[in-house]
Amino acid sequence: MGIHQLDLHPKKPSNRSTDAGRAAAYAKGQSDLFTALALDEDLLELIRGQARALYQTQRYDECKDVILGLLTLGDARPEYANMMVTCAEAAQDFMAAADWRAAAAGSWMTVEAQLPLETK
């Protein structure tokens, strides 16, 4: 393969590469999962989009898995709790739904506390 072709097809970041240092740090409890996986915001945004798509197409079982994954990766947003309420209700898990409903109310209050006072 000529160098010009290499330029046309730049090597994509491989999902098969590993970083032993990060893995060791994670196993010692010195870093979180997001850091250990060296994830970036763009990938998270893609995953969030998938969660929304699954939710809006009423695939709640899978939507729930994605949201739990996002929370595990440290991505916390108040609407996740609202989505989880619907997912739990669809799975007939009304106790979990009650937990998530309470968490949703608390999350939005937390967000509200961060809004500027002069907002109208």
Binding site: T18, A20, A23, Y26, L37, A38, I47
Partner: peptide
């Protein structure tokens, strides 16, 4: 998205744990 996800690193984390 699965392809873009660092699968090998995920496995490495699991192994390290």
């Amino acid at each position: 998205i699965q392809k873009a996800f660092p699968m090998a690193q995920l496995e490495a984390l699991e192994k390290a744990l």
